[in-house]
Design a protein around this nucleic acid. Structure first.
Length: 584
RNA sequence: GCGCCCUUAGCUCAGUUGGAUAGAGCGUUGGUUUCCGGAGCCAAAGGCCAGAGGUUCGAAUCCUCUAGGGCGCACCA
């Protein structure tokens, strides 16, 4: 099963092929002139260009070949050679009745896909900057899983650098390592206290180390010992990591962002030495200015690409080294067909270097797709990288709390049922808040920079997450009422009326939006679709009587449409990591 | 210096192989609730798609140049 447009593309593609023309030219899409037709095919014009023929003549041939097909209620040639198409209501009804999985056909790609969308450092408070990769990556994970990919989301923690040496050094100097070592990571209060402690201690230690060469040297020395798993450094580190992960799980949990793998840089430590040996054996790695590097520039390059540094001149590894080793591990453990990085756009050169080095070294197969799906920088309303008013970073927890508070206030203003319990109330407030934050972010195109505007992020009207929840909740409420009234519509047939058609056609576009999102690793296509669907429903709802409709056949048909719309909205929102309450 | 990205309505943003009259939201103005949830619905105003050339039957989209903005270019991540 596919989208309606895809079905039509297959039919018309076949007609093009029968004429000795490429099937791709038969591509049908939803018309951008809904006043003229439901669907359009522009292939005749492209074909005419290739064959140096009159486009209308080619269109005429196609149209004649289609005329025997009874799924079309209108086939017209317009302008220079557009083929305008309408489908019959019978076809539309049949499509809606028979489509499974919302018209999404499963991918035939069987191997694993790894999505890398985390990257927070342990022992540091998560801030607003962590929001984008988390939200986009988690949405892509859900979207691809729905399409049938076997997806693994990896957080890829920053847990192995000099910053750990600084922090551990500070605990030991202050004689306070007991705070960490004796902590119970399963106790949320302890976790919270320690996270707070980290967030004060780490900046302090970092500033001190930068100002004092001796402290920096000590931090580096501790890092080396840590990496050799020496006590007490390693046990302290293990605990810091454990506590940090618990802390992160709380924050990510509130956001509804899930990871399958909680791996970090430390996990690939043991892969580095053999990998470098291999690079040397293959004569790819060599010494340059005291550092060990791999060249990645090629003759075709029109730009300067610096070599990837494997070991610094002091012998320490860099993040490029661990990124390479991470791919070694991923190939060994999972053999993914794709690895997709949801990372800040500014790291594109770095990943280009890593990917080239990895391919040169034969770490991945030729058919392993490594993709850098970069996202734009989050700027403040002043157009500069986002900072809070006092110049600091906005903690992610605070951001969520602010949104929740606003949702809370809004909920208290509307007439919610009196019987609502505190648990449900809080659950609704959080769902509304998260919907607002996520949809505001996800509707932006991934690559371009965007303005972080708190008011917009926590806005509930217009093209927002809460609007989408609201529309879905309204339908669910309507369906509940129908059930309470004992209206039996599930076995009845859908019969499309004039007022239903726009909504019905839109229901058949879901798969197109989903595929576009996967093709470009860009959830905003799905956002666009969901919003259009919600809007179409709202319009339909305002125009049509449903429960008060006297014609029971029409009533049942509309209820079925409502049910399909609600299911589709809820499913699609779920793919964005947005969850719908029963009421709001 | 080299390279990458961006510039679409007052603001924030969509715009899929180049296609017909460039679309949303916010804001502004007007209408809308004797009937299923008004976080709604309907409508209006608002655009030389940064500018100039070029390719094409046809350009916001492709090419070149210019202006403005962002970012990256070996031992930070």
């Amino acid at each position: 099963m596919t989208s309606i447009a895809q079905k039509l593309s297959d039919i018309i593609g076949g007609v093009f092929e029968a004429q000795g023309l490429p099937a791709e030219l038969g591509l049908v899409r939803v018309s951008d002139r809904p006043d003229l037709a439901q669907f359009q095919c522009n292939g005749a014009m492209a074909a005419a260009k290739q064959a140096k023929k009159n486009p209308r003549e080619i269109a005429q041939i196609i149209v004649e070949a289609l005329s025997s097909n009874d799924i079309f209620s209108k086939i017209e040639i317009a302008g220079p050679g557009f083929i305008n198409l309408n489908v019959t209501d019978t076809f539309l009804e049949g499509y809606l009745e028979s489509s499974e999985n919302f018209g999404v056909d499963a991918t035939d790609e069987q191997r694993k896909v790894i999505l890398d969308y985390g990257g927070p450092n342990i022992a540091k408070a998560m801030h607003a900057g962590h929001l984008r990769p988390a939200i986009i990556g988690d949405a892509l994970r859900r979207i691809m899983a729905f399409k049938g990919f076997e997806v693994l989301g990896d957080i890829h923690l920053g847990d192995w650098g000099t910053h750990m040496g600084m922090l551990i050094g500070d605990y030991i100097r202050e004689g306070e390592e007991g705070l960490v070592l004796n902590a119970n990571a399963q106790d949320p209060e302890t976790v919270q206290k320690l996270m707070d402690d980290f967030s004060v201690r780490y900046p302090k230690a970092s500033i001190a180390a930068k100002a004092d060469e001796a402290l920096m040297t000590e931090a580096r020395a501790i890092t080396v010992k840590l990496q050799d798993k020496e006590a007490p450094y390693y046990p302290i580190w293990e605990k810091i990591r454990e506590v940090s992960i618990e802390g992160m799980k709380q924050t990510y949990g509130q956001l509804g962002v899930h990871f399958d793998l909680w791996k970090g840089e430390a996990d690939v430590h043991d892969y580095i030495a053999p990998m470098v040996d291999d690079l040397k054996a293959k004569e790819l790695a060599y010494m340059s200015n005291g550092a060990c590097v791999v060249d990645v520039v090629t003759e075709e390059d029109n730009k300067e690409i610096p070599p990837l540094i494997i070991y610094k001149s002091d012998g320490a590894v860099l993040y490029g080294t661990t990124d390479m080793a991470t791919i070694v591990e991923r190939m060994k453990l999972y053999e993914p067909s794709r690895i997709i990085y949801i990372v800040d756009q500014r790291q594109s050169l770095h990943f280009e270097q890593v990917f080239r080095a990895v391919k040169k070294a034969g770490i991945t197969n030729d058919n392993t797709e490594l993709t850098f799906a970069g996202f734009g920088t989050m700027n403040g309303t002043d157009g500069k990288p986002f900072k809070t008013r006092d110049g600091g970073v906005l903690r992610l927890e605070d951001l969520i709390a602010m949104a929740k508070e606003k949702a809370d206030k809004r909920l208290s203003e509307v007439n919610l049922a009196d019987d609502i319990k505190e648990d449900e109330y809080n659950d609704i407030a959080l769902k509304v808040a998260i919907a607002a934050i996520k949809f505001a972010d996800l509707q932006n195109q991934r690559q371009s920079n965007y303005i972080f505007d708190l008011d917009r992020l926590t806005s509930f009207e217009g093209k927002t997450g809460p609007y989408l929840l609201y529309q879905t909740v309204r339908i669910k409420s309507l369906l509940r009422k129908a059930k309470d009234q004992g209206i039996n519509f599930e076995e009845k047939e859908i019969t499309i009326q004039e007022q239903d058609r726009a909504l019905a056609l839109l229901l058949g576009e879901f798969s197109d939006a989903l595929n576009l999102s996967i093709q470009h690793y860009a959830p905003h296509h799905l956002c666009e679709y969901i919003y259009k669907l919600a809007q179409a429903f709202s319009s339909f709802y305002a125009n049509c009587h449903i429960l008060s409709e006297e014609d029971t056949a029409i009533q049942a048909s509309r209820l079925k449409l409502c049910q399909k719309t609600a299911l589709q909205l809820e499913t699609a929102l779920g793919l964005l990591g947005i969850f719908v309450p029963e009421r709001m």
